[in-house]
């Protein structure tokens, strides 16, 4: 496994930490995500999935935020560490 693997947040495993490189979302949702700390460069940790598999909870900017599949498949980043 190489050190700078690019993947979608949705595809990351629980326990992975991902540094955001790109948000493929526009409009209000992009603004909301930015407000919450999903900014390029930020490190996001995958915490857990909800009982039905979606949404997924992420740790970002010292808070826990849940995102649906629709959004987390549009956020890309590089894997920085995994468990």
């Amino acid at each position: 496994m190489n050190g700078s693997k690019i993947l979608k947040l949705f595809d990351a495993n629980i326990g992975d930490a991902v540094r955001i490189t790109h948000l493929d979302i526009n409009g209000v949702m992009r603004r909301r995500l930015l407000d919450l700390g999903f900014v390029p460069g930020a490190i996001v940790k995958v915490l857990r999935k909800s009982p039905l598999g979606d949404p997924i909870a992420f740790r970002v900017s010292q808070t826990t935020i849940a995102l649906r599949k629709e959004e987390s498949t549009k956020i890309e980043g590089e894997l920085v560490s995994y468990e």
Binding site: D35, L36, G37, S61, Q62, T63
Partner: peptide
């Protein structure tokens, strides 16, 4: 205090 960065925003 536990999530100051985003709050400072």
């Amino acid at each position: 205090a536990t999530a100051l960065e985003r709050n400072l925003n």
